[in-house]
Design a protein around this nucleic acid. Structure first.
Length: 817
RNA sequence: GCCGGGAUGGCGGAAUGGCAGACGCAAUAGACUCAAAAUCUAUCGAUCGCAAGGUCAUGAGGGUUCAAGUCCCUCUCCCGGCACCA
């Protein structure tokens, strides 16, 4: 027997797998399909990260098990390669982003292969490949044709450092998600995708998928569906103000109405506003505020009354004052609220500050709140005319039917889809002045002319004016209008990096198709994705965006299901040893390469799975990996103890011992099969590994082990540590590859011990234990317990009040004085 | 503020209401060795005891139960998400 040498074994098997194409999914197999997906990596310059390794390994384990269970498994890989880091690196080094991407993907590919993942490399895709982004552009055009992509001048989130506009989802606490710079407001024309049109379905259909509950909750909160009512407050002399409220029952308590600074009516009213100058100054200041200013200024509310403007409460005709205040958000509901200071915390604070009247209209069912406080709960209506005495719930409905209409609003906003940078998919539209005069200036590039490829440029530097660097390339920008043939200009904005990842799982099923993004036949065969694992950080970004795209494609009849992913799980982050996030700037990033060199991919894979619960964050610890490495060495050395035809003499010598050990070890073996099988499904990889360690430890204690037992251990280990398993499988003279062998089945009849240990408790405290046969009766157990030397001390002289008997486990004698 | 998740030895962690600390790391002692590494054996929550055995112990405090890390109530701290959403 040789020493366990991972450096020899691992490359050897990786080559064989590749050569024999053993992990390539079959488009024609009649086996049941299993489509497993991991988030395809962004090929950054730092190379593969331990986080990738952990989540890829987890899905790799599941896939290898599925294959052994007889599934036709699709486990694809590709590159989400558009994005700012590459572009910034290109600017710094003067290299083409495409060249940088090539270099980085080469590194990543080598690293992923060295970890032994069972990806189907024949389906590798790259979002920056024109053959791929042709279809990203094509899908965009479908949005455009359905009027779900539209250009809008709006106040956007502008990152002054990255010089790029950001989607709402990319702004975190008023800071740029990527670089942490405070985000500014800028007015700019942007392409938008109307994700809000799908808000209701995106929220509702969460009921139909198997996602982790916290993922569903986060998405629901992000979409923020809210049922309420809309009322119109007439304004004397100039139209009406629409307000949205979830508390129609409090409408008799309205003492003023507030408009957001962005509200268009502010401008419209300006003629009749007595203090117009003051109002305009306030609005200007409020609009200029950055997100971070709004949050740091906290809850201190400011506002200005629109003097000379009065609104009329539709339920009682009361004339109330109208204010503009930035505590009302322009982007939510109608951008205006009816203020009920007696029953809303914010309105109360505002009314208090500006001395506005407070009118109580809801009485608590238990006790009256103090006059100086607001009362938020439901109760009984008072001071509400004919609705007095009604309960809040009922009043909401009645008042809405009588005076307003029921309405649903969402927190979700349309997706800002333009980026003013180079390294992204060009938006395949041209602007034609000529056509614009006939009503529509934006013309789709004909499908036959796709892809609109990125031109090579010398300078990727973003411009301070907020124009894309592409706008400097005149020969690219100037083109012919596909509609009228006249001179036209290309759109120079590019798509956000979320575009290519919104549909990549569809391309995997048919990656080389040049006629369609994927054929209907293969989409029917493979989709939906059966199991998608990824990071929680993508819950409100990528995961939501791709569900939206999928539903859109479904509506066009282009994909067979309304949801892309049947099941979604999430991994915990790997933190650095100091418990902080791993990051280049902190200098605490752990590079998997050195561990693969020293201990091998198998030991590293095992360790990353063994570190802790998969869904929990774990801190990296350099020392731990020796534990799993030693475990593999021990498994390797068990070869010596294997009994086979080769060691006939040995069998004779140890025959007696073997007999004695067999029942006990078989019990453990079958329990281990069951445990590993279940734990993989539940993603409890750490306890599965521990179970295999226990089995190995027990094997070591024996003088010999049956070849069948060893074989099963190797099969169980194979998904986790595929290389060593493959090698040992061959040593055992098995044919084929270990993962092509059938997954071991546990035999429940062999899982029960004949002998068990009974725990003896007195008054719930453990006092003793004894061995007994399975199925020992309560009486027998009781007799044994009360005659037990140690237990006796606590029982003698006392009255036995009760006996609790848990079969095959425990007997508890309850005694009293 | 609201919504999730969590707190267990020196460390990572395990435990369908039924022996708390499985498994692994680190540590200590011993064997092997000229020596070291590797490996093997033993010990390894605290505390009292020669021992048998006892007591305490799962963030804090209460409760339910024959029995609580696990269920209920109150609180503290940590992590993640949302946050003036009317």
């Amino acid at each position: 027997m040789n020493r366990y040498d991972h450096k020899e074994i691992e490359p050897k098997w990786q080559k064989k797998w590749e050569k024999e194409k053993v992990f390539e999914a079959s488009d024609t197999s009649t086996k049941p399909k299993f489509y497993a997906l991991i988030e395809f990596p962004f090929p950054s310059g730092q190379g593969m990260h331990n986080g990738h390794l952990r989540s890829n390994t987890a899905m790799d384990i599941i896939c290898r098990k599925r294959r052994a269970e007889g599934y036709n498994v699709l486990y694809p890989i590709g590159w989400d390669a558009f994005g700012l880091p590459t572009e910034n690196y290109a600017i710094k080094t003067g290299k083409q982003p495409s060249v940088v991407t090539k270099e980085n993907t080469d590194t990543f590919r080598r690293q992923l292969k060295s970890a032994g993942f069972s990806f189907d490399w024949s389906r590798e895709i790259d979002t920056t490949d024109p053959a791929y982004y042709k279809w990203t552009q094509w899908i965009f055009l479908q949005f455009f044709k359905q009027n779900l992509a539209y250009k809008k001048k709006m106040s956007i989130n502008w990152c002054p450092k990255d010089k790029i506009g950001l989607a709402n989802e990319e702004v975190v606490n008023g800071l740029c998600e990527r670089c942490g710079t405070p985000v500014e407001k800028r007015d700019k024309e942007q392409w938008m995708l109307a994700i809000t049109k799908y808000a209701d379905r995106l929220s509702r259909d969460l009921d139909t998928v198997d996602y982790l509950e916290n993922i569903k909750t986060q998405q629901r909160n992000w979409i923020g569906r809210s049922e309420g009512s809309e009322f119109k407050f007439k304004v004397e002399g100039a139209g009406e103000i629409k307000v949205f409220t979830t508390r129609a029952d409090t409408i008799f308590g309205v003492t003023y109405v507030v408009l957001a600074p962005e509200h268009p009516l502010v401008d419209k009213f300006i003629q009749q506003i007595v203090n117009a100058g003051e109002v305009e100054a306030y609005v200007k200041k409020a609009k200029a505020k950055t997100e971070i200013d709004r949050t740091t200024e906290g809850k201190e509310k400011t506002g200005v009354e629109l003097k000379g403007v009065k609104a009329i409460n539709p339920v009682n005709g009361e004339r109330v004052s109208v204010w503009v205040a930035d505590y009302v958000l322009g982007g939510y509901g109608t951008g205006a609220v009816m203020a009920v200071p007696a029953h809303d915390e914010r309105d109360f604070a505002f009314a208090h500050k500006y001395n506005l009247p407070i009118k109580e209209v809801i009485k608590g069912e238990k006790k009256n709140p103090k006059k100086t406080e607001y009362f938020l709960e439901d109760g009984i209506l008072i001071n509400s005319g004919k609705f007095d005495g009604m309960k809040s719930e009922e009043a909401r409905q009645k008042i809405t039917t009588d005076f307003g209409e029921a309405k649903v609003t969402y927190k979700l906003k349309d997706w800002i889809f333009s980026r003013q940078r180079y390294w992204g998919e060009p938006i395949p539209l041209v602007y034609c002045e000529n056509c614009a005069q006939k009503g529509n200036g934006w013309i789709a590039v004909p499908e036959a002319d796709l892809p609109v490829t990125l031109p090579e440029v010398k300078n990727y530097q973003p411009t301070n004016t907020g124009e894309s660097p592409l706008s400097n390339i005149k020969e690219w920008v100037n083109t012919k209008c596909p509609a009228c043939g006249g001179p036209a200009k290309r759109e120079t904005d590019t798509m956000p990096n979320w575009a290519g990842s919104s549909w990549y799982y569809l391309r995997y099923v048919d990656p080389k198709n040049s006629k369609e993004f994927a054929s209907q036949k293969l989409l029917k065969k493979w989709t939906p994705v059966d199991w998608y694992n990824g990071g929680m950080e993508h819950t409100t970004l990528h995961l939501l965006y791709s569900r939206f795209w999928h539903k859109f494609l479904f509506d066009l009849g282009l994909v067979p299901t309304s949801e892309p992913y049947s099941k979604r799980t999430a991994h915990g982050l790997i933190l650095a040893a100091d418990g902080e996030k791993m990051s280049k700037s902190r200098g605490n990033v752990v590079n998997p390469d050195e561990f693969i060199t020293t201990y091998g991919a198998d030991a590293l894979r095992l360790y990353e799975m063994f570190m802790g619960p998969f869904d929990q964050p774990v801190s990296w610890n350099d020392d731990g990996i020796v534990g799993t490495f030693r475990f593999l060495e021990r498994v390797w050395r068990l070869q010596e103890k294997v009994v086979s035809e080769k060691f006939v003499d040995k069998i004779k010598n140890i025959a007696g011992k073997k007999e004695k050990n067999t029942p006990k070890i078989e019990t453990l073996l079958h329990r281990t099969i069951a445990k590993v099988t279940n734990d993989i499904e539940d993603m409890h990889f750490n306890t599965a590994i521990s179970a295999m360690m226990i089995l190995t430890n027990e094997f070591e204690k024996l003088d010999s082990i049956e070849i069948e037992w060893y074989k099963i251990l190797i099969q169980l280990l194979a998904p986790f540590a595929p290389h060593i398993a493959e090698e040992l499988w061959t040593v055992l003279k098995n044919k084929g590859f270990v993962h092509q062998s059938a997954w071991p089945k546990s035999d429940s009849t062999k899982m029960e011990n004949k002998q068990i240990v009974m725990i003896v408790q007195v008054n719930g405290k453990v006092r003793s234990q004894f061995e007994a046969n399975v199925g020992i009766s309560e009486n027998e157990a009781k007799n044994k317990a009360i005659s037990d030397t140690n237990a006796k001390k606590y029982i003698d002289g006392k009255q036995i009040k009760r006996v609790i008997f848990v079969p095959n486990k425990l007997i508890n004698i309850v005694v009293g004085e």
